[in-house]
Design a protein around this nucleic acid. Structure first.
Lengths: 234, 234
DNA sequence: ACGACGATTTAGACTAGCCAAAATTAATAA
DNA sequence: TTATTAATTTTGGCTAGTCTAAATCGTCGT
């Protein structure tokens, strides 16, 4: 019924909207999908005709509830697949994204159910991103903040890590920084360079681009600093 | 590089060619893919331009070695997926086909490797069809014959069951007839109705359409009649 | 040998999705 | 207020894949 291409547009609009709020500009979608702005304008028109987005001319688009449901369905597929690949097919968390992107449009409802069952209905994927529930209820807003917004001596727990850039993910996997890891901010240098202590006195200096891909929440007093991964291994 | 659609054409041509030999007629492909003959003619032209098939006007098409390699790759994906779904996601052998069809064009080489490894490099899928090896070497000809070609008192082992029709597969699953099952032909009635004894004196009467989807080889003396499934469970 | 019929191909047209170039709009700075 | 500029939309055109209708070919029976 809905093409793969349209599903991709809706997923992308959802993700931009979740980050920056509506309206979502033509060029933001174009950048994310590596299409030209006229192509996006044209497709937004199609999505509007189908009642999946609303638009305001020269401003941008916003998902309707129906459009959001489709986006959540695709996102659920994507994140269940990521979790399954990591858990049952020995993928590392830095490898799962591309494979999930390729498969997310082509799995059946039955497959979705069986994968969810095999994983015991997980609520987050290996990057710490929330997995929409089977009823596709809207996700709650996420209170995590980028590591770059924190100050020296803050103690925080990694909530999730943006899965946009494979190289960044591998860098962080090497550094032992995954969802659930407790970090202490040791230093904030010019140009956004952030130094953190993970467990056992190990210190890591992270370039800004990497630090801003790490979303964290305040550490509870009980949690010790270190490489705990209770969230991503759940 | 190669579109999903082209891959589907090549897979289909391969399967018809394996059954009836070249050349493969336009209308045979059209029937199998539920496209019109002009559509197929047009696509065969594209495949010819890419060196994947050779054609003789008004006769039909034949895969080149390159075209056959592509077909074997897709067939390997399909059959590995079927085996994986049955083995690790609790699908029954009658359910795996459609899911594999949807996914076979979208898995990476890495995914293929990991699935094959998880299954310990299987050589047949749940229907008994051979899985092309990773090097995509041509499959040997299959010496199995349709059950309808046999006579009363023949003792045979099921090699494979055509996976074309879901209803037929469910019928056979209910009847306990799977690859590896030993059968004894008890009766051959008019209109192709075949009656067989499976294990423990149970007799089944099979309509022609079902009987001709069952491919068998002569039973070795050692094998007892019954529901052994050593092939499909391998 | 020839005509009829079924299969195949050709011709023409349509949709989805994409792009480049040109026109338009909104926002900002002078 | 007006002019510049950046973003967006419009215009026109391209490819892949599909279809229907019409023309053509091959084969088989007479």
């Amino acid at each position: 019924m809905l093409s793969d291409v349209m599903e991709d547009y809706l997923k992308t609009i959802y993700q931009i909207q979740a980050r920056s709020g509506p309206p979502v500009s033509t060029s933001a979608v174009a950048d994310a999908l590596e299409k030209t702005p006229p192509t996006v304008t044209s497709m937004l028109g199609n999505l509007e005709d189908r009642g999946l987005v609303t638009r305001e001319k020269y401003k941008g688009a916003e998902l309707t509830p129906e459009g959001e449901t489709v986006a959540l369905e695709i996102l659920r597929h994507h994140r269940l697949l990521e979790a399954y690949l990591a858990e049952h097919l020995d993928y590392s968390w830095s490898e799962v994204h591309d494979e999930a992107d390729a498969l997310e449009h082509h799995i059946s409802e039955e497959f979705e159910r069986r994968v969810a069952e095999a994983l015991d209905d997980p609520v987050v994927d290996p990057h710490g991103d929330p997995i929409p529930s089977a009823d596709l209820a809207p996700l709650e807003d996420d209170e995590a903040t980028p590591l770059t917004a924190h100050e020296v001596d803050d103690r925080v727990v990694v909530s999730r890590v943006s899965d946009r850039d494979r190289d960044e993910l591998e860098y962080l996997a090497d550094a032992g920084i995954t969802p659930g890891t407790t970090l202490e901010v040791v230093d904030v240098a010019p140009f956004g360079m952030v130094t953190v202590r993970t467990g056992s006195d190990a210190e890591q200096s992270l370039p800004e681009s990497v630090a801003e891909a790490i979303y964290v929440r305040p550490a509870t007093d009980a949690a010790p600093a270190g490489g705990s991964t209770e969230v991503s291994d759940a």
